[in-house]
Design a protein around this nucleic acid. Sequence first.
DNA 1: TTTCCACAGGAATAAAGGGCGA
DNA 2: TCGCCCTTTATTCCTGTGGAAA
Length: 395
Amino acid sequence: MADFGFQPTGNIFREREALLEEWTPDELVGRDEELRQYHAALQPVIEGETPSNIFLYGKSGVGKTAATRFLLELLERDSRDVDGLDLHTVEINCDGLNSSYQTAVTLVNELRDPRRQISNTGYPQASVYEFLFEELDKLGGTILIVLDEVDHIQDDSLLYKLPRARSNGDIEEARLGVIGISNDLNFQDQLNSKVRSSLCEKRVSFSAYNANELCEVLRQRESVAFEDGVIDDGVIQMCAAYGAKDSGDARQALDLLLESGDIAREHNVEMVTEAHVQKARERLQRDQIIEGIRNYSRHGQLVLWALTLLAEEGKTPARTREVRQPYEVLCEKEMSDPVSDRAVREYLSELETLGIISSNQINRGKGGGKYKEHELEQSVASVKAGLSELLDTEA
DNA sequence: TTTCCACAGGAATAAAGGGCGA
DNA sequence: TCGCCCTTTATTCCTGTGGAAA
């Protein structure tokens, strides 16, 4: 058997944490205008006034969450010097929370003692809101609630209630401000007009990073994260180019740099090269697929598997009914009944949202009709690797 | 200008499952 | 244990869409 003992290697990292999402830099690069607007929207807090509700929007990885953490840290620091200002911030990520109910439960548990947590089901909605307002009032002072990825909440109920809690008499002691963060640029339009006007009192739009800005961001982190001279020429540009291609996403570019460093360390080499970036990209794509469909129902995974088989045979883009044929064969092998056409359409639509496949609408007019064609957005090898890992673990 | 096609996707509804309080 | 209240996952039904063909 191989020797799995742990020995320190020649470490290329100085402070690896600087590439992680939770790390907040001393200075945010390339976000000056966004920070100026955001700062102005938070100003009432330090004046001791009721906070504005703020809505941040922009594609993923453009610095919305980082800017929030950066400014809230400063705000908390400076608020300590202001007499009579008692500031609290609560941050939750709504990814995986589909409803107002689940979000309210998460907020209650965030505010409560670990011994008094409530479960995710079983309570009437009104009781959960009652618990929430009770906890907020108990906390008192000025409370900023950050709802990251707020567009995942599929109903308006909580977003309607929170900004009105004080005027409706649900809370008496606390002053409440809601900061909603969304990757979905159309989210505001989908909101009920009353919710929109209260939740989006102040709006800050975050534009995508271009390749030059991404280079700046990566260099800033690289200088902290890595030892001097371990990054090969071209590695930063390559990560930035991939990030810019992925709609100006700094998070993906940073993940890519981190993974490249990890791969170099695994191979016990002293330099991170472009070859490591290539390898890291494949690994991240596979992980993205696994993460995206980990909690998917079996049929959702089979639909993706069916499209992958078609891609392997060079039969993509494929229309929905063409995906159905291999899907039914897979169901037969699994000895389970296939789901309806409607459900297959729903799965394909979700896979598109996850960025795992892309769908294109085709209209062939009279006699041909209108339909969608789907193809993989990631390489067949990555999808197969991701799917087999999931299907094997579940088997 | 109207017709037609092939779906897409919204809405209503059902079934199954889990936690809570009485 | 039972009824209630919530969830997720699915089905059925139905309307809307939009560009080529008639």
